Amino acid sequence: MSYSIFHNLEIKASPKKVFDAVSQPKHLDNWWSLKSSGKPEVGSEYNLNFTEEYNWFCKVSALKTNESIHFKMTKSDTDWNSTTFGFDLETKEKETLVKFSHINWQKDNHHFKHSSFCWAMLLNGLKNYLEKGIIIPFEDRN
C-alpha cells in the first residue's frame, strides 16, 4: 500500500507562467528551494538544494510544456526516495487550476503528514509569488 498527497488550487496567472514557476530553477528558488538547477525536459536531473543536509535530486518523469511536469525523486531522504511529485495545469477563464500530487509514499507516518502540511503552505507561497510578486526569504519558509 502507498499513500498520496493531493492539493488543488487556483492561481490568477496563465498556465505558461505557472508552468515556468514550477519548472524553472530561477522561479523554484523564489518559492520553494534555496538553490536549484535543472531543465524542464523528460529525463533531465534537477538538484533541489535546501541545506547541506537536504541536497536532493530528482528527474523529470513526465512533461507536457505549459500543461504538466512530474518529478521522480532519485536522491533524498528515505521517505521521499520512492515518491513522485508533480503539477498538472488546467486552463480556467482568468486563472489556472493547479492539481498538485505527491504520490507513492510508503508510510503514513509523521513525515508524510508534515510534508502534506508543508506542501499546502508552499503552494500558497507559489500562489502569492505569481499573483502578488511576493518572495518569502528561504529561511522564513516552513
Results as ranks from 00 to 15, higher is better:
residue 53 E to L: 08
residue 81 N to H: 14
residue 91 T to M: 05
residue 114 H to Q: 04
residue 111 H to L: 01
residue 84 T to W: 11
residue 46 Y to G: 02
residue 125 G to H: 13
residue 116 S to N: 15
residue 63 L to S: 05
residue 51 T to L: 01
residue 65 T to S: 12
residue 111 H to C: 06
residue 97 L to A: 06
residue 113 K to L: 04
residue 62 A to W: 02
residue 45 E to D: 02
residue 73 M to I: 11
residue 122 L to G: 04
residue 86 G to Q: 06
residue 130 L to S: 04
residue 112 F to Q: 03
residue 55 N to M: 02
residue 93 E to W: 04
residue 94 K to Y: 06
residue 67 E to R: 15
residue 67 E to K: 15
residue 121 M to S: 15
residue 56 W to L: 06
residue 75 K to D: 09
residue 72 K to I: 00
residue 64 K to C: 00
residue 113 K to D: 03
residue 47 N to M: 05
residue 58 C to H: 07
residue 97 L to R: 07
residue 66 N to M: 03
residue 85 F to H: 10
residue 132 K to T: 05
residue 58 C to M: 05
residue 54 Y to L: 01
residue 52 E to C: 00
residue 46 Y to F: 14
residue 74 T to G: 12
residue 92 K to A: 00
residue 45 E to Y: 07
residue 77 D to P: 05
residue 61 S to Y: 05
residue 118 C to N: 15
residue 107 K to R: 13
residue 84 T to Y: 14
residue 133 G to N: 13
residue 95 E to H: 12
residue 108 D to Y: 15
residue 116 S to A: 15
residue 66 N to V: 03
residue 50 F to I: 03
residue 89 L to E: 08
residue 89 L to R: 09
residue 109 N to S: 06
residue 65 T to G: 05
residue 112 F to R: 02
residue 100 F to Q: 13
residue 111 H to R: 10
residue 117 F to Y: 13
residue 83 T to S: 12
residue 102 H to I: 10
residue 122 L to N: 07
residue 88 D to S: 13
residue 87 F to V: 08
residue 58 C to T: 08
residue 80 W to M: 15
residue 124 N to I: 04
residue 99 K to Y: 03
residue 85 F to D: 08
residue 70 H to Y: 15
residue 100 F to V: 11
residue 48 L to S: 13
residue 73 M to D: 04
residue 110 H to E: 14
residue 89 L to A: 10
residue 73 M to E: 12
residue 117 F to G: 07
